[in-house]
Nucleic acid binder design. Structure first.
Length: 219
DNA sequence: GCGACAG
DNA sequence: ATCTTGTCGC
């Protein structure tokens, strides 16, 4: 649970991002293939109710090791660039319930591929101190060339001259995903992990599991 | 001034 | 995010 104060206005949220962005650590000390990976997602209903879910999978067989959920009421409106302030509270509450500390967090959204280089994956990584990266379904910032159609192909995502992420094809001929580092992990490593998590579908198995669980927890 | 805008 | 049927392709 959160006892401290949480930003209520856009101004306060921007100030928090400005204050925490310097704490992002791009050093990568992760083993090439961490034993377990944890996916997170949030589902919404039409009454301000939200449900967060976290699912830890064994990297080798992609089997569920542990999973938790947390229901709450949205405390911050959706605002492009600030949506972490909406999803972070329930996500942190769900993470705190885990018995085993996650090796790396796979977020449903962006990390550095953000206007101020501090998307959900960075914010979550900084607050938990855990390695984290983002896998977004759509572009938020930056421009890029179309990656080749073969799974594994990628193109850099560039915004204002900065390489903020990669557009990665996880399945042959299927719309690519947007991968970006969040905290304590490099982009190349994040892409390799993403491919390890997408043997069959476009989105990481972690995200798929968390999505399924969050929706179920909403009822 | 006119779009674009993670989930 | 979420609302939703049929339809194209392997």
């Amino acid at each position: 649970m959160h006892t401290g104060d949480w930003p209520t206005t856009v101004e306060e949220a921007l100030a928090v991002q400005e204050r925490l962005r310097g704490r992002v650590d791009l050093t990568d000390d992760l083993p090439e293939l961490p034993p377990a990976v944890t996916g997170l997602d949030v589902a919404y209903d039409d009454a301000g109710g939200i449900a967060a879910a976290v699912v830890t999978l064994e990297t080798a067989g992609l089997t569920v090791v542990e999973q938790r959920t947390h229901r709450a009421q949205a405390v911050f409106p959706y605002e492009p660039g600030l949506f972490a302030f909406r999803e972070l509270p329930p996500l942190l509450a769900a993470l705190e319930q885990l018995d085993h500390e996650p090796g790396v967090l796979v977020c449903d959204g962006h990390g550095l591929a953000h206007p101020r280089r501090f998307g959900l994956a960075c914010h979550l990584g900084v607050l938990t101190g855990l390695p984290a990266f983002g896998v977004g379904k759509t572009r938020f910032v930056g421009s890029h060339a179309a990656p080749a159609s073969a799974r594994g192909s990628s193109e850099p995502l560039v915004d204002a001259g900065d390489e903020v992420g990669a557009v990665l094809r996880t399945q042959d001929g299927v719309k690519p995903v947007y991968v970006s580092a969040g905290h304590r992990i490099g982009l190349a490593h994040a892409c390799r992990l993403t491919l390890a998590l997408t043997p069959r579908y476009r989105l990481p198995e972690t995200t798929r599991q968390a999505d399924r669980l969050s929706r179920a927890a909403l009822r």
